[in-house]
């Protein structure tokens, strides 16, 4: 980028792209900081990467840093199209399965919800 204008245009382009492409996607955020990894978030990430392939819905998995919720790591935040994000934790493979099969597919609530934004 050669100027401040370039930066601002790039930002606008990114923001509008995201708005269009992510509008209809399931957004899954998985915390991948040291504390999350220590409690097993790598397994959860692998699980989502694999299990979501079999789902028909379009989705994006985002790895993030620390959510601050060390007491409930590994944490997973899911935002279904048109609804507010929901934070789950602590997530193990079994609850990850429930998050996909119950919450993402059917919109039903799952036990390990920490909070809703």
């Amino acid at each position: 980028m050669g100027s401040v204008n370039d930066l601002e245009n790039f930002r606008k382009e990114l923001a509008s792209n995201l708005k269009n492409t992510e509008k209809n996607k399931v957004i899954i955020k998985i915390a991948m900081s040291t504390c999350s990894i220590a409690t097993g978030s790598k397994n959860i990430l692998d699980y989502f990467n694999e299990a979501m392939l079999k789902q028909s819905s379009s989705y994006r998995i985002i790895t993030t840093g620390c959510t601050g919720l060390c007491h409930s790591e590994p944490t997973v935040e899911v935002k279904l199209p048109g609804s507010e994000p929901v934070m789950f934790g602590p997530v193990d493979v079994k609850t990850a399965e429930a998050i996909i099969n119950e919450y993402i597919v059917n919109g039903k609530s799952v036990d390990c919800v920490i909070g809703r934004n």
Binding site: L7, R11, L14, T63, G65, C66, T67, G68
Partner: peptide, 20 residues
């Protein structure tokens, strides 16, 4: 941005107000 954006992706940072 912690726990919200992908730290390994500069576009995620810029799409907010990164480097503004």
């Amino acid at each position: 941005n912690c726990g919200i954006t992908d730290p390994e992706n500069i576009e995620d940072y810029i799409s907010g107000d990164g480097y503004a």
